[in-house]
Amino acid sequence: MLTVGLFVPCYIDQFFPQVAIASLQLLEKLGCRVVVPTNQTCCGQPMANSGFAALAAGCDKNFIRNFAGLDFIVSPSGSCVLHVKEHLSDQHAPTEAARIRNQVYELTEFLTDILKVQALTASFPYKVGWHNSCHGQRGLHLSSMSELVAPDFSKPARLLQMVDGLELILPQRVDECCGFGGTFSVYEEAVSVKMGRDRIREHEANEVDCISGVDMSCLMHLQGILNRQGSRVRILHIAEILNARS
């Protein structure tokens, strides 16, 4: 049995606990022993992406304290995982930091590459519009990228195809950014919202029931716009769908 440390990004912990719960239950269903370090906070990405990587040192230290010694660290967020993979550092614990950078996985990546999941018991009889989150896709290579001349693949889509009744619908601009971008969403509010609205317009034209992705931060941004528009389209993290009971 694999022991997995569940890394719950701060905003998921506070605002989207159902995503962390679904991730926990899903990993357990797939036979993992899941450890949840309860003193975890944030990976430090908000500071680092705003130019203050130096201010993320405290977060890095805390992260390492919480996840030291775990063989696998899994998180339902491509963006936070990418940040840890690229930037986690601690001059007092360089080896442990390097080990964690290597052992941290986004959830669908872990399910595909480590657990090698071939079947799921989930059922979700709805039309799902897929949102490729940039950090998961272009950063972690969860799926092929429209810019590159390379074979098509998608780890999340492959998993979604194992869900009973689910109809997966890709927008035409299959991997255009939603415009969240962390603090970009407030500092560049106008462009950020415009980008989000454009993504939503495509999904609504496809008459999806919900929009899903691997990053709750993108989805939170899209949800904010959907709710303001009074749309019937829901937002669900992929963990919630993969964990949906038959």
Binding site: N49, G51, C134, E147, E188
Partner: peptide
């Protein structure tokens, strides 16, 4: 200018 980006990587 470096902040006029979501760092999407395209």
């Amino acid at each position: 200018l470096p902040f006029a980006s979501t760092l999407c990587g395209s």
